[in-house]
Simulated scan of single mutants.
Amino acid sequence: MSLAVIADIHGNDLALQAVLDDIAAQGIADIVNLGDCFSGPLEPGKVAARLTAMNIPTVRGNHDRYLVEQSPEAMWPSDRIAHGELLPAHLDWIRALPETHVHRGEFYMCHATPQDDNRYWLEEVLEDGSVRRKSLAEIEALAEGIEQPVILFAHSHLPAMLRLSDGRLMVNPGSIGCPGYDDVAPYPHKMEAGHPLASYAIVEKGAGGYGVTFRNVPYDHMAMAALAASYGRPQWASALATGWLGKSGISE
């Protein structure tokens, strides 16, 4: 049994199509989505049309929530761009998304953590902006009460896998459409994948248990970087072009 895990598309339809083609090439039909589908200066309307037609298990991310809880005037630019392209039916689709979901009785799904859709599960941000891995005890505390053997989560945009002391497997597939960003909470910091490829994960169940393969898929990322630049979003353009912030070299 194989399951493809996608997350953090952020309106990048070219990256999503490349990943879906790669999943199909692996012969995998079972796909789940961990949220943050649309917000970004790219092509959120196309992503919405594609995802709503697919009808795959999806949980709501923090940026999905902003699109239905905030007024456009109060939104950050990436959310405002997405909101302007989404149809009322797309917003209704977001409203219907659960915060958590259990897939096939084995896979627990959430966007960030079960308690907070805007909190890193594995990482801690320090006052100086550096990011470090939390202790195992801190990570396990957030997993209390989850009975499923595999925990799927996202939000940091950084692929990761670890086993808890009781054997449960945790998997972050990384981001399909946004390989780097900066944030101001809880302190100003950057998250950078270091490459511009579209990332997702495959979880396979075999006789010996669960295994994970991380896939990094090429696509026309420079087209998306140029689109972000045309919206006046240089950090987005840099991340899409290189996987790093501040290194795009794209004319704006």
Score class of each variant (00 low, 15 high):
73 E>I: 11
7 A>Q: 08
61 G>L: 07
2 S>C: 12
174 G>N: 15
186 P>M: 07
57 P>M: 01
244 W>A: 08
171 V>Q: 00
120 Y>P: 08
122 L>E: 15
56 I>T: 10
245 L>S: 04
34 L>N: 02
176 I>Y: 06
176 I>L: 10
198 A>Q: 04
205 K>C: 08
133 R>L: 15
91 L>S: 01
22 D>F: 00
12 N>K: 01
223 A>N: 11
170 M>T: 14
9 I>Q: 07
52 T>A: 08
219 Y>D: 13
212 V>N: 02
158 L>G: 02
234 P>E: 15
84 G>A: 11
175 S>I: 09
74 A>Q: 14
158 L>N: 02
65 R>A: 14
61 G>M: 08
93 W>M: 10
107 F>N: 00
28 I>M: 05
204 E>G: 03
3 L>G: 00
25 A>E: 12
177 G>T: 10
82 A>T: 13
11 G>I: 01
47 V>S: 10
106 E>I: 00
170 M>L: 14
1 M>Y: 06
238 S>M: 03
59 V>G: 12
138 E>S: 15
9 I>L: 06
27 G>T: 12
203 V>P: 08
206 G>M: 11
208 G>W: 05
42 L>P: 08
115 Q>S: 13
19 V>H: 02
230 S>A: 11
234 P>L: 10
163 R>V: 09
175 S>K: 04
213 T>F: 06
103 H>E: 13
239 A>K: 04
160 A>E: 15
8 D>A: 04
104 R>Q: 14
236 W>M: 07
239 A>I: 01
167 G>D: 10
45 G>V: 11
47 V>P: 09
70 Q>S: 07
12 N>V: 03
82 A>G: 09
67 L>D: 09
175 S>D: 15
146 I>M: 01
251 S>H: 10
208 G>S: 12
237 A>E: 13
59 V>D: 04
156 S>D: 14
44 P>Y: 05
139 I>G: 08
199 S>I: 07
59 V>L: 02
235 Q>M: 11
225 A>W: 03
57 P>R: 07
42 L>M: 12
14 L>K: 03
190 K>W: 06
203 V>T: 12
64 D>E: 13
94 I>R: 02
42 L>A: 07
67 L>I: 07
245 L>F: 07
204 E>P: 02
21 D>L: 04
44 P>T: 05
123 E>L: 11
100 T>L: 01
24 A>I: 03
185 A>D: 15
180 G>W: 05
76 W>K: 08
170 M>P: 00
57 P>H: 05
180 G>P: 07
230 S>W: 04
84 G>K: 01
151 I>L: 13
